[in-house]
Design a protein around this nucleic acid. Structure first.
Length: 87
DNA sequence: CGTATGACGTGCA
DNA sequence: GTGCACGCCATAC
C-alpha cells in the first residue's frame, strides 16, 4: 500500500468540486473501504486541513454532522455554496 | 494487545 | 418519527 487510507480520504475530499456534496460512505468507497465511513470521519476530525473542504462531506441523512471549525460554520458555507442539504 | 471513543449507517421496537 | 443497539474502521490511551 503506497498510500494510507488516511491520505486517500484526504485526497478525495480535497478533490471535491465547489457546489458538490459527498457523504462519508461515498468517500469511504472511493478510498477503497466502503465500510470505513467511521474512520473517514475520524481522519477528517483529526487531520482537518485548510485545503480540504471537509464541509462538503455530510451524512447520508443530509445532516451536516460536525465540523472542527463549528457545525454552524459548515452549514453557513454549504448555504453559501448553494448546496444546502435541504433534504 | 485490549479497551474506549468518534464528524457514521442500518435495523428494530 | 424517535430512540437504542450493533457493526465497522482508524486512532488514542
Amino acid at each position: 500500500m503506497s498510500v494510507s487510507f488516511n491520505e486517500k480520504v484526504l485526497n478525495i475530499v480535497r478533490d471535491i468540486p465547489k457546489g458538490k456534496l459527498m457523504t462519508y460512505g461515498e468517500v469511504a468507497v472511493l478510498a477503497g473501504r466502503p465500510k470505513a465511513y467511521r474512520a473517514v470521519g475520524n481522519i477528517l476530525n483529526k487531520n482537518y486541513d485548510k485545503a480540504i473542504p471537509c464541509h462538503r462531506v455530510i451524512r447520508k441523512d443530509g445532516s451536516a454532522g460536525g465540523y472542527n471549525c463549528g457545525r454552524e460554520r459548515k452549514l453557513e458555507i454549504l448555504k453559501k455554496e448553494g448546496v444546502y442539504p435541504d433534504f
